[in-house]
Amino acid sequence: MAERSTRVGRRPRAAVVAGREVVVWRAGDGAAVVMDRFCPHQGAALELGRVVDGALRCVFHHWRFDGEGTCVAAPATRRVPHGASARVHPSWEGLGYVWTWVGSAAPEYPPPDFPHLDRRSPAHRRYRFAFDTNATARRVLENGFDVPHFPVVHGIAGDLRLTWDAEVDKHTIGTRITTDSITLPAPLDRRPGGLGRLCLHLRSTPSYQVLTFELNDRPVAHELLAVTPVAQGRTTMHGWTVMPRSGGLLGSAPVFWGYRLQHWWGTRADLRIYRDATETDGSINTSDDEGVLRFRQFHRRWTGGGRGTGQPVRRGEGGTVSRRGWDEAQDV
């Protein structure tokens, strides 16, 4: 993703997505635009400009670019050069964010489907989260597939089992991590014998994933986790957690705040490890590493051989496309 929707307005904002510098702004029709940061004329930073008559005006020579990237005015020159344009990346606005695809000319898979934030969905409590880390985007996403780290890092005890979903499409990998009796670290769980059956259903693309936590076959929380690789070895992980409001203890406010505290505590424990971790050659593994290894193989299909990484990006350059490009990419 490029930016939170509430932070995108008529004043352009600079951002970095998958190592690419962009500028995010709103055109005259209110649509969010994600454009290369520097003016194609003389390279001025476009966030120093302003939106005039629905187009982004460069501060240097007042060239103006519309939401499609076309130069619509160049007052300091006799005529607008033929074909003058700034590169616009496909974008989609939803779930409180502006999402973008940088690199290739068209997206290779769709933006996230997370209906739990829909106003028509059952009543719920929710919170937004964001963390910066030195880890790569892949390491952040593979964490949920790393079954052995749950008892060691997070104190979640139980006979954890990994079951893979049948492949639904080429851009998603899914698994269920289950146990018949889960025990959380004190003071979160004081019940003898544990809390009951747990199922974590995890569906991941190369740049975002949706998680559903079930306790005794009842959904307790839904999470959307997205990653924005902002520099080499630096990633922002952010998204939403949604917990249904319902009768009984699991739908109560104390459980919501307890879950939120546990989420923060657990994420901080992972970030503390990420801070100083390094990449290995991947040659030393055990059978318990199946989840991580299979996710890495899936992720490599997109990051290697010309595929992209992150939000996601493809090696090599594509042509300029309209901001409607995500909707127009029907073959993903």
Score class of each variant (00 low, 15 high):
residue 59 V to W: 09
residue 229 P to Q: 14
residue 244 P to I: 03
residue 255 V to P: 08
residue 256 F to M: 10
residue 301 R to G: 06
residue 126 R to W: 05
residue 244 P to D: 06
residue 151 P to L: 01
residue 96 G to L: 02
residue 209 Q to M: 15
residue 312 P to A: 15
residue 80 V to K: 04
residue 48 L to M: 12
residue 73 A to V: 01
residue 21 E to M: 00
residue 64 R to M: 13
residue 299 H to W: 12
residue 266 G to F: 06
residue 68 E to I: 06
residue 16 V to G: 09
residue 47 E to C: 00
residue 279 E to D: 11
residue 213 F to C: 10
residue 298 F to I: 05
residue 80 V to F: 07
residue 216 N to V: 08
residue 66 D to K: 07
residue 205 T to G: 06
residue 265 W to I: 10
residue 86 A to W: 01
residue 248 G to Y: 09
residue 317 E to M: 13
residue 314 R to C: 04
residue 279 E to L: 11
residue 16 V to C: 12
residue 55 A to I: 03
residue 303 T to D: 09
residue 83 G to R: 11
residue 49 G to P: 06
residue 33 V to G: 10
residue 161 R to P: 04
residue 145 F to G: 01
residue 291 G to A: 02
residue 21 E to R: 11
residue 308 G to N: 00
residue 108 E to W: 13
residue 56 L to Q: 08
residue 275 R to M: 04
residue 157 A to Q: 15
residue 313 V to R: 13
residue 139 R to V: 14
residue 10 R to D: 13
residue 239 G to P: 00
residue 227 V to L: 09
residue 125 R to D: 05
residue 311 Q to M: 15
residue 276 D to S: 13
residue 323 R to E: 03
residue 140 V to S: 01
residue 330 Q to S: 14
residue 197 R to Q: 07
residue 128 R to Y: 08
residue 27 A to V: 03
residue 204 S to M: 10
residue 195 L to E: 00
residue 238 H to K: 08
residue 76 A to M: 15
residue 317 E to N: 13
residue 281 D to M: 02
residue 278 T to V: 14
residue 100 T to P: 11
residue 98 V to K: 04
residue 42 Q to C: 13
residue 224 L to C: 01
residue 332 V to H: 12
residue 225 L to Y: 05
residue 232 Q to K: 14
residue 1 M to Q: 12
residue 102 V to H: 07
residue 270 D to V: 00
residue 89 H to A: 06
residue 233 G to W: 01
residue 257 W to T: 15
residue 135 A to N: 02
residue 213 F to N: 09
residue 281 D to C: 00
residue 234 R to Y: 05
residue 87 R to G: 07
residue 179 T to C: 00
residue 115 P to S: 05
residue 236 T to L: 11
residue 292 V to M: 03
residue 186 A to I: 08
residue 121 S to A: 15
residue 264 W to T: 03
residue 223 E to Y: 10
residue 93 E to P: 04
residue 123 A to Y: 03
residue 175 T to Q: 07
residue 276 D to M: 13
residue 199 C to H: 02
residue 64 R to S: 14
residue 153 V to G: 01
residue 82 H to I: 15
residue 167 E to S: 13
residue 149 H to R: 09
residue 176 R to E: 10
residue 169 D to K: 08
residue 209 Q to D: 10
residue 294 R to C: 02
residue 198 L to P: 04
residue 7 R to W: 14
residue 312 P to D: 15
residue 58 C to W: 03
residue 9 G to T: 12
residue 174 G to F: 07
residue 72 V to W: 02
residue 226 A to F: 08
residue 270 D to R: 05
residue 110 P to S: 13
residue 10 R to K: 14
residue 185 P to M: 06
residue 277 A to T: 06
residue 149 H to M: 09
residue 196 G to I: 01
residue 298 F to Q: 00
residue 112 P to K: 07
residue 203 R to H: 11
residue 7 R to G: 14
residue 193 G to S: 06
residue 259 Y to I: 08
residue 232 Q to D: 14
residue 29 D to I: 10
residue 78 R to G: 12
residue 277 A to D: 09
residue 241 T to W: 02
residue 228 T to K: 15
residue 226 A to P: 02
residue 173 I to A: 04
residue 6 T to N: 15
